[in-house]
């Protein structure tokens, strides 16, 4: 058993602030999960295509929705109904970039 890992060079924020916990990302994550998804641009890890999510191929059934890249057909996302909620499984989605619902926000933790 070794002691705590020493901080890696460059760890933490550019401002040198120490790492905090997930609460600190709540506001920013809330923005991500509230983006207007049809216009948000999805980047496929499989083929590198960038396209608005509205242009993805979607298969819907009672279980949920399978969202595929129109470029290479790989699964970007799966959205499933689960008891009491929904489940998002991230497949080949490398990034999702969208406008904040209220038109932008100041930088995190400003």
């Amino acid at each position: 058993m070794t002691g705590p890992h020493p901080p890696r060079p460059g760890a933490g924020t550019p401002a040198g602030r120490p790492p905090v916990d997930g609460n600190a990302a709540a506001g920013l994550l809330g923005e991500v999960l509230a983006v207007e998804v049809t216009t948000a641009v999805a980047e496929c890890r499989g083929c590198g295509a960038h396209a608005p999510l509205a242009q993805a191929v979607v298969e819907v059934d009672a279980a949920g929705a399978l969202v595929r890249c129109r470029g290479c057909t790989r699964t970007l996302l799966t959205v499933l109904h689960v008891p009491g909620g929904v489940r998002l499984e991230v497949g080949c989605l490398a990034a999702l970039t969208g406008a904040a619902p209220t038109g932008g926000a100041p930088g995190a933790g400003g």
Binding site: E36, T38, T39, P52, L53, A54
Partner: peptide
Amino acid sequence: EVRGPLGRYF
């Protein structure tokens, strides 16, 4: 029951 409006792309 309805949910929306949805979509800003089209």
